[in-house]
């Protein structure tokens, strides 16, 4: 509660400084609209913004879900065989060497202007942090547990399921936290490159038509979405870490 109050106070300070800058700096509203103007636009265009925000939200959530599942499966796959590690790990690192910005136009070309290309950008950004942190966790199961499991006569599959995966969940959580921050970035990059819907598209459109107040309103909603996601995923990760920490 105290922290919420602190955040609200600092937001209020920024808004006041912003309003003061607009008033005394005599900035035209197409360069920097006042916060009041942005709030008014946000209210007046709420239906428009909400419909675009809904598209972006779906892209973010689907990207997060698919990227996390693919990343986690890759981590498990890599952890199970040194041959796979030898062959696949360089490919994994290569996917990180390619800037997603550069690939996004290609995805739009291949998958069209719809949601699929944006989800793919988000998936690609999320995939690596999830895969690599979960993989690290899977490779660092405390030796005592592994020895106990083997002496008990566990099959590799059951050892993985009952000991290695649960023990790696705190590491998985740290990857997931990063993924939650990256997912909106991926979706918006996808929308900037080519889209007909979504907050990123709306921001570009508003910018092009010098409707800076609308751009700020869309930006505000995007920031709010990102914060909400960050908070929700963060709480989930806290629970994981609390329960599974060695």
């Amino acid at each position: 509660m105290k922290q919420l109050l602190r955040i609200m106070l600092s937001v209020l300070l920024i808004l006041l400084a912003w309003q003061a800058l607009v008033i005394w700096g005599e900035l035209p509203h197409f360069i920097l609209p006042s916060p009041l103007k942005v709030v008014t636009t946000l209210w007046e265009s709420r239906v428009l913004i909400a419909s675009h925000a809904w598209v972006t939200t779906q892209e973010i959530l689907l990207g997060l879900l698919i990227g996390t599942v693919l990343g986690a499966l890759t981590a498990v796959w890599l952890s199970q065989s040194s041959v796979v590690r030898y062959l696949v790990k360089p490919v994994l690192i290569l996917t990180q060497a390619l800037p997603v910005f550069a690939l996004a136009p290609l995805f739009t070309l291949w998958l069209g202007y719809g949601m699929a290309s944006k989800i793919l950008v988000a998936v690609l950004i999320i995939y690596f942090p999830v895969a690599s942190s979960f993989f690290d966790g899977l490779m660092q199961t405390p030796q005592g547990w592994m020895h106990m499991g083997r002496v008990m006569g566990a099959t590799p599959k059951r050892l993985l399921w009952h000991i290695q995966i649960p023990a790696a969940l705190p590491s998985f959580a740290s990857g997931l936290r990063l993924a939650a921050v990256y997912a909106p970035i991926g979706a918006v990059i996808g929308e900037w490159v080519g889209a007909s819907q979504g907050l990123g598209y709306l921001m570009l459109l508003a910018n092009g038509r010098a409707k800076i107040d609308l751009m700020f309103a869309a930006l505000f909603v995007l920031a709010l979405l990102t914060l909400l996601l960050h908070y929700a995923v963060g709480r989930f990760c806290d629970v994981l870490v609390e329960k599974y920490r060695p």
Partner: peptide, 20 residues
């Protein structure tokens, strides 16, 4: 070597789980 995510009862049963 107790597993922190399992109850004491489930920890005692872990051998049977690991062997199926």
């Amino acid at each position: 070597l107790l597993l922190p995510w399992l109850s004491i009862l489930d920890n005692v049963l872990i051998g049977q789980r690991l062997r199926g």
